[in-house]
Amino acid sequence: MYDIIGIWVGAFFTLAIYSFLYKENPIYRLAEHLVVGISAGYGMAITYQITVKPRLIDPLLSGDHWILLIPGILGLLYITRFIPRISWLSRYPIGFYMGTAMGVGFPLTMKANVLRQLEGAMVPLYQSGMAWYEVTGNIVMILGTLAALIYFFFSKPHKGLFFGTGSKIGIWVIMVGFGATFGFTVMGRISLLIGRIQYLLGDWLHLIE
């Protein structure tokens, strides 16, 4: 019973959103507002039950983790944002989080996004057993990366053999890459529609398996 009512309610709201395709209307507006409230409320509930309670309140109440008062108070300072006179206090927790997050991320980003990618761009052009399209692929990959980097290089005019031709090849490579993104984005949006149609025709109306 629980499930059946659930699916009917879900189908109602699915159709409420689709009604927007015909015309903006009050039911669509209701659904749009509900989703904002529910997701924020759900987030708040989960965060309290999973983080704040077991990690802060329970240990503090048990009495021997007084050091947790420091992050607790720092966290509470966020709330000063709403009191204009002392709202600057909210900069303390923001500063703590921003600074440390950037510090932790710096070497790791350097490694994963820069050094590893540089390493990945240095592949042998040919190894025994490679098909011709793999070899051309490698050449396209290396030259393409170089050319696309030239396109995003702003300190030199795009003139001459290296910078001029390079940036021209670069923009072509970038366009082919964007073509792939385009195709995949279309595919993704259609997939989401398919998911909803399976829900409506299958779970709700049982017309399809």
Partner: peptide, 26 residues
């Protein structure tokens, strides 16, 4: 990955940082 993201993460795949990737519904 969702299809929208899939093309952006090929560099990780080629650099050997991930063992494989499923892109979108396909």
């Amino acid at each position: 990955l969702t299809a929208v993201m899939a093309t952006d993460y090929f560099p990780y795949l080629q650099a050997g940082q991930v063992i494989g990737q499923m892109g979108g519904l396909r």
